[in-house]
């Protein structure tokens, strides 16, 4: 019982630590690739402590409630994802619930930003939702392929199945889905070339523009957790999860660095270019994977 409670408390903190580490790493690696020195790795931590003690402006109750909802949603998703052998909420609805709880984060930000009533925010949210529609098409196809292939909706069972038959990404139909997931990962994380919704030079960071102090703190935590969630899901579904947290972390790190290389090298796409890309190659691959799996099943 005590062990379970400890899992509930410590796991989100570990996830947060990893996410924040990734934020720092992202800035550092991008800087090194672009021949800059870059800020220290702990810069995000320093920023977050500063945000906590800084005064801020608010635009009403929904402004705060939306953000709280968004952050709470992200933390709950973390509890559903197996991390090594740790998974506090394994038996409460599986991947379908994860899929839906993941909606709370963007919806919360959208609500909160809506109350902000800044034109940059609404442009940012509009772009974010369109982009989400763009990557959800391949993403849903990928998840359906995995669920159909293993005939389960539980992530834990997907991980266990891979322990016996090897990583999903090494088998043929799921290889296509895995590649598709990797191709849309930058869009899901909001990294270049898909950072249209938070483009700093164009729309002053979009949904974040009105946030300061504790609001920005929560938005940063939310972003850090998003990095953790999307990559951990990939590791669980395609790289066989892991028996212990250390291996799991190493796998996550490798995937993240791959995404960073793309982030550092590519310029930003316009929104319709992004959609066109997302609905072309990743969707085609994911669809091919799903068709093969469905035919193989029947």
């Amino acid at each position: 019982m005590v062990g379970r409670i400890l899992q509930f408390v410590l796991y989100p903190l570990v996830a947060l630590a990893i996410g924040v580490f990734f934020l720092g790493l992202a800035r550092k690696i991008t800087a090194r690739i672009q021949w800059r020195y870059g800020p220290p790795l702990v810069q995000p931590v320093i920023d977050m402590i500063r945000f906590f003690y800084q005064k801020s402006v608010s635009h009403g109750p929904v402004f705060a409630v939306g953000l709280i909802m968004s952050l709470a949603g992200s933390i709950v998703v973390v509890l559903f994802l197996p991390f090594g052998s740790i998974c506090p909420l394994s038996g409460s609805g599986g991947l379908l619930v994860v899929l839906y709880v993941m909606l709370l984060a963007p919806m919360g930000i959208a609500l909160s930003g809506g109350q902000g009533a800044n034109p940059n925010i609404s442009i940012g949210i509009s772009r974010k939702l369109i982009l989400a529609l763009g990557y959800e098409v391949p993403f849903l196809l990928v998840l359906l392929t995995v669920m159909t292939h293993y005939n389960t909706i539980s992530i834990v069972q997907v991980v266990e199945a891979q322990r016996d038959i090897g990583w999903s990404i090494a088998s043929l139909p799921l290889f296509l889905s895995g590649v598709s997931y990797l191709l849309i990962l930058p869009a899901m994380l909001g990294f270049r070339p898909f950072d249209v919704s938070t483009a700093p030079q164009e729309i002053s960071s979009g949904p974040l523009v009105e946030y300061g102090g504790k609001y920005l703190l929560m938005a940063t935590i939310e972003h850090a957790l998003l990095l953790f969630i999307d990559i951990a899901l990939f590791v669980n579904l395609f790289l066989g999860g892991a028996g212990n947290p250390i291996t799991f972390f190493v796998k996550m790190l490798i995937v993240f660095v791959l995404v960073l290389f793309i982030h550092a090298a590519f310029p930003r796409l316009r929104i319709e270019q992004a959609i066109r890309y997302l609905w072309k190659w990743p969707t085609a691959l994911a669809l091919a994977g799903l068709i093969i799996v469905t035919i193989g099943r029947s």
């Binding site: 801020s56 952050l71 933390i75």
Partner: peptide, 23 residues
């Protein structure tokens, strides 16, 4: 989780409500 986040939010420095066009 929402309660925990809310407590964190509440413990942080205060915010002031301002008119939208002001900001």
């Amino acid at each position: 989780v929402s309660a925990v986040v809310w407590v964190l939010f509440h413990r942080a420095a205060k915010s002031v409500v301002v008119a939208q066009d002001d900001n």
